[in-house]
């Protein structure tokens, strides 16, 4: 995965709560066996509405999605992460995420930023008012900054655990990290009772 330290880009406000992963990428797109090209299915049903925020030319090229409470709930499909990344998003900001999506995002290198609801609202309103000013998502400093526009000077800290932050900043392969402890895995396996089920 690509390391993530800091990213500066423009924001798209998505003013909806409870956006489930079925909306992010409908099941009909999940039949593919690759990780690529899911961007065309991103919010597929909503993008048929000309007024949908991603269809507004003023948000073309934006790389940060600012979403509502309980973003990406429901299905475990990592395709939701792949679709957002393929479309060009580098980070998603929301007051709360579906647990599985948040895990998936940090494994694939899309930064999920949990931010207080009030700060999310400020960012959404700012992006609606004027989509031009850029937002900086600084993982090193654990903060969101808006340097220009009417909300210039906004600094909002966010929380992320040290381990996940380190993995993202280094772009580390989780499997490689775990395999460093293969001895511990083998030792654990030696203690498993014989009556535990096997599929073979």
């Amino acid at each position: 995965m690509q390391p993530f330290t800091t990213h500066t880009g423009r924001a798209v406000p998505l003013r909806r709560t409870n956006v489930d992963t079925d909306q992010i990428i409908p099941a009909s797109y999940l039949k593919r066996v690759s990780r690529d090209g899911f961007g065309d299915g991103l919010f597929a049903a909503w993008r048929e509405e000309p007024s949908f925020v991603l269809n507004q030319p003023r948000y073309d090229g934006a790389t940060i999605l600012v979403a509502g409470l309980d973003f990406a709930t429901g299905s475990s499909r990592e395709h939701a992460v792949w679709a957002l990344m393929d479309y060009g998003f580098k980070a998603v900001i929301a007051p709360r995420f579906g647990d599985i999506f948040r895990n998936n995002a940090t494994k694939a290198g899309l930064l999920p930023v949990v931010l207080h609801e009030k700060s999310v609202l400020v960012l959404q309103e700012a992006a609606e008012e004027d989509p031009a000013p850029e937002i900086t998502v600084d993982l090193t400093a654990r903060e969101i900054r808006v340097d220009s526009g009417t909300h210039g000077g906004l600094v909002a800290p966010f929380e992320i655990d040290n381990y996940t932050r380190w993995r993202l900043m280094e772009g580390l392969d989780d499997i490689g990290l775990t395999l460093r402890h293969e001895d511990a895995i083998s030792a654990f396996e030696a203690t498993r009772p014989a009556w535990l089920p096997a599929t073979a």
Partner: peptide, 20 residues
């Protein structure tokens, strides 16, 4: 519990999962 595809790969390779 449910997991995503990266974690599926992790479990296939290691039979473990780093979890908080």
């Amino acid at each position: 519990f449910g997991i995503g595809t990266s974690e599926v790969e992790h479990v296939l390779a290691t039979q473990t999962l780093p979890s908080v």
